[in-house]
Amino acid sequence: MTEGNFVDYVKVFLTSGNGGKGSVHLHREKYITKGGPDGGDGGRGGHVILRGNQNLWTLVTFKFKKHFKAGHGAHGAKSRSTGADGEDVYLDVPLGTILRDAETNKIVLEITEHGEEKIVVEGGMGGRGNWHFKSSTNQTPRYAQPGMEGKEESFILELKILADVGLVGFPNAGKSTLLSVITSAKPKIADYEFTTLKPNLGIVQYRDFQSFVMADIPGIIEGAAEGKGLGHYFLRHIERNATLLFLIPADSNDISREYEILLDELRRYNPELLDKERLVAISKSDMLDDELMEEMRLELDNDLKGVPYMFISSVAQQGIQELKDRLWHMLNS
């Protein structure tokens, strides 16, 4: 998936169908000249329905088409024939999609399961035909109900990635490089901050043909919880990850300090994120010798307060299989 095709926030305009009119008809056939009212009901207008699709990872299908309109219900007919319902419109969305009211920004619904269907905008009801209004005092009513009009509403579709492992770190920490090594994903990689502007997804192949999904979230900067930099634009993607992998480069001035800043940003954005399992990976560790690594271990044992950590190098392929083993155990423990 190219970065330009990753769309995770889009406004759509949805219109349901009008209900069909009820029929005004009096039954007539040979030898029956006054058979009474038999006008049928109008069909309901088409709904606009959101449907979960596990094969989609982005909202790119809504990038260029944002207006969707369901079909109108057919009018009723003679012999109490009900008009056909209007054609429903189905919008397939990735799992993890949230629908918000465009005016209030309140969450209306969310889609988390494959094949899950939820009506977003209901079609108008069809009008009742004149046979419904027959009574002892009005045996030939010559009126019927009109169909109800459909609704036109605007919504925000917002995607929160459903991944097993979320990569968390400052810009240029090596997240994209790790993702390119541990999965078959091909993220953009360069030696400057904010190379990754959109989340990248990769499938990690594990032993015995098993796998799990890893997401490279754009780098966090201090103040992201308040919306600084890319802010909430990417922090929301971390909410759906089962495990958080903190990636901090070995050449950082203060590894423990960086970890605390990252943790504090998550805490300020959503304290529930701290309930997720965490693992700290010290990247670019191929530049460390055994003596320096041992010194760092002593510091980290004291500073990380029981949070598990390990040393890896994506370029030198050091500790990659051990990282997979550790993540798999955390996901399945």
Results as ranks from 00 to 15, higher is better:
Asn200Phe: 08
Pro218Glu: 07
Ser135Leu: 10
Thr15Asp: 01
Arg28Glu: 07
Thr243Ala: 11
Lys66Thr: 15
Pro94Arg: 08
Ala77Ser: 11
Ala74His: 10
Pro249Ala: 03
Glu29His: 10
Leu56Phe: 07
Leu266Val: 06
His47Tyr: 08
Pro187Ala: 05
Asp191Pro: 13
Leu201Ile: 09
Glu122Ala: 11
Tyr31Asn: 13
Ile248Ser: 02
Leu279Asn: 01
His27Val: 04
Thr58Gly: 06
Ser135Val: 14
Leu262Ala: 01
Arg326Gln: 10
Glu222Trp: 06
Asp289Ala: 12
Ala316Phe: 05
Ser256Asn: 14
Leu167Asn: 02
Leu263Lys: 00
Ala316Glu: 11
Gly52Trp: 02
Leu245Tyr: 00
Arg100Lys: 13
Ala163Gln: 00
Thr140Ile: 09
Tyr31Pro: 07
Leu292Asp: 15
Lys78Glu: 14
Val93Asp: 04
Leu178Phe: 12
Ile221Gln: 08
Glu295Tyr: 15
Ala102Tyr: 13
Trp131Met: 10
Gly166Gln: 02
Ile107Gln: 07
Asp191Tyr: 15
Leu14Arg: 01
Gln321Trp: 12
Val10Thr: 10
Leu109Ile: 00
Tyr143Met: 04
Thr104Leu: 04
Ser211Asn: 12
His237Leu: 10
Asp290His: 09
Thr183Pro: 01
Ala173Arg: 00
Leu109Val: 04
Tyr309Ala: 08
Leu26Lys: 01
His47Arg: 02
Leu50Phe: 11
Arg257Thr: 03
Glu239Leu: 15
Gly227Ile: 14
Leu292Tyr: 15
Leu109Asn: 04
Gly319Phe: 06
Lys63Pro: 02
Gly20Phe: 07
Tyr269Thr: 05
His67Lys: 12
Asp101Trp: 07
Asp208His: 09
Tyr259Gln: 01
Gln205Asp: 15
Ala173Val: 02
Gly150Ala: 08
Ala242Thr: 14
Lys30Gly: 07
Gln145Ala: 06
Leu288Lys: 02
Gly147Asp: 08
Gly40Thr: 01
Leu279Phe: 05
Glu110Ala: 08
Lys284Arg: 09
Val168Met: 05
Ser211Gln: 11
Leu197Asn: 12
Ser256Pro: 03
Asp264Ser: 02
Phe64Val: 12
Arg257Gly: 00
Lys160Met: 13
Ile217Lys: 00
Ser256Asp: 06
Gly202Asp: 08
Ser81Trp: 01
Lys305Ile: 10
Pro271Cys: 05
His132Phe: 11
Asp208Pro: 05
Asp275Pro: 08
Thr177Met: 12
Ala74Arg: 09
Gln145Trp: 06
Val60Ile: 12
Asn55His: 07
Gly42Leu: 04
Tyr192Cys: 02
Tyr9Cys: 09
Val60Trp: 00
Tyr269Ala: 03
Phe246Lys: 02
Ala144Met: 10
Gly127Ser: 11
Ile156Phe: 14
Val12Thr: 03
Val24Phe: 04
Glu158Thr: 08
Ser79Met: 14
Pro271Phe: 00
Gly71Tyr: 06
Glu265Lys: 03
